[in-house]
Computed example of a mutant assay.
Amino acid sequence: MGTEAEEHPHGAAVVTDGFGLKGPRGWAFREVSFRAEPGALVAIEGPSGSGRTCLLLALTGRMKSHEGDAEVGGLALPRRMAAVRRISALGQVPGVSELDPAFTVAEHLRERALLQRRYDGSVRALLRRPAERAATSRARIEEAVAAAGLDLAALPKGERTSVRDLERLEALRLSIALALIGRPLLLGVDDTDLKLSDADRAEAWALLRSVAASGTTVLAVCSEAPADALRLTTLAGAAKPTGESARQPAAAESATRETAADPADADADAGTGTDTDADGAAEAGTAAEEPSDDAAPADAAPDTTTASTTEEGAADALAETGRA
């Protein structure tokens, strides 16, 4: 029973309080406070350049935060970034984790299964017979492909279809399947609704809901969040937000105001470098009310809005990861 529980872990809870990341020319994001229970669907909504992807990468342990507190699966950020990376996985994030257009679907799946077995497998698993290891890899691939709703037989050339020949939705499904091979507790997906028709967008969100329903916590960057997701809204200007914690009936209101940040003070590395001095600290106030019988249902549309960011700060922070 214990082995089965390890192979099918529950999702990771995500908790942040005043979370922020600063780039050389300003804040990529700041004053992010929310709570998402295991298996929640969290939509990071906002315009391009508002720090959406930086927030996604910070919460999955790929970028170092500089302000506030955050925990993912009980692991504190940024101190336990490496541990958070081990329990999380990314779908396609341009410049960070991308599909190779020259590879076929089968090549991508086999490569990811091989890397998973080589770097994340237990010593006991590595000592298994080759035939047994191959069967385990095939089972992992089939499970991930099914969970991502990727119909290999419906592709133009089946599993031999090149990534460059995939439709946008199918490429999204493939990137999620690759991430799910590692059975992560937290899945991060960037540009979820980019260049999708209304029908394809509905399918994409249905897919992410099913992944969340299976127990994996999902963080999804988008331009427009669905009504049933915990919504985090990033803004490029001053914000007076309202919101709820995921799966919590209590409503909460918060107001934040950011002091202008002097670019000369932002001398820190936003990716894996050292901590910065937050000279442009924000003044914040919060007010909360207790749950009542009239509170919104748990699956209603929670919403949390982050404080202001600068487009330059978000761009600089992303440049630290190689995504300009």
Rank of each mutant, 00 (worst) to 15 (best):
A43W: 03
R231H: 12
L187I: 13
S292K: 15
A295D: 14
H10T: 09
E203R: 10
E143R: 12
P226W: 02
W27M: 08
G74E: 09
M1E: 13
Q116M: 09
G182A: 14
D316L: 09
S65K: 07
D165S: 11
A239C: 12
E289W: 09
D151M: 04
R164H: 09
A28C: 09
E4C: 12
E111L: 10
T256S: 13
E283G: 09
A5H: 11
L178Q: 00
D267F: 05
A36R: 03
I44P: 01
V221L: 05
L178C: 06
V211P: 04
S137N: 12
K157Q: 11
E170R: 01
R117P: 00
V14R: 04
L207G: 03
T286R: 15
L99K: 01
L180M: 11
K22A: 12
S214N: 08
R257H: 15
D269S: 12
F19T: 03
T310L: 09
A131H: 05
S210G: 04
D269W: 03
F29W: 08
A202Y: 06
S122N: 14
S210F: 01
T304G: 10
P101H: 11
E67Q: 10
A125G: 13
A270V: 08
L318S: 01
A199V: 14
V93A: 03
A36N: 12
A301P: 14
D191G: 08
G158N: 08
L185A: 12
D299L: 13
S254I: 13
T310A: 04
V32R: 00
T242P: 10
L207H: 07
V42A: 02
S245M: 13
T310H: 02
L230Y: 06
L235G: 02
A153R: 05
G271T: 13
G68E: 05
A212S: 07
V42L: 04
G158F: 00
E4Q: 11
A317D: 06
D277P: 15
A28Q: 08
A300H: 12
E45K: 07
A246I: 04
A58T: 07
D265P: 12
R117I: 01
A125I: 09
G74I: 13
D269M: 04
S245V: 14
E312P: 03
G26S: 08
A212T: 03
A134C: 02
G46I: 01
T161E: 05
A300E: 07
T309M: 03
P156D: 00
A131I: 11
A134E: 15
T272W: 11
R86M: 10
G91A: 10
L230F: 08
T104Q: 07
D100A: 08
L169S: 01
H10D: 14
V189G: 01
K64Y: 00
S65Q: 12
T256V: 15
L196V: 11
A89T: 07
T305I: 09
V84S: 04
A298F: 13
L56G: 07
S245L: 15
A298L: 14
A300Q: 12
V42I: 09
R173T: 02
S245I: 06
A301G: 13
A238S: 14
A131E: 10
R140E: 15
P297T: 09
A125F: 15
T16W: 01
A295F: 07
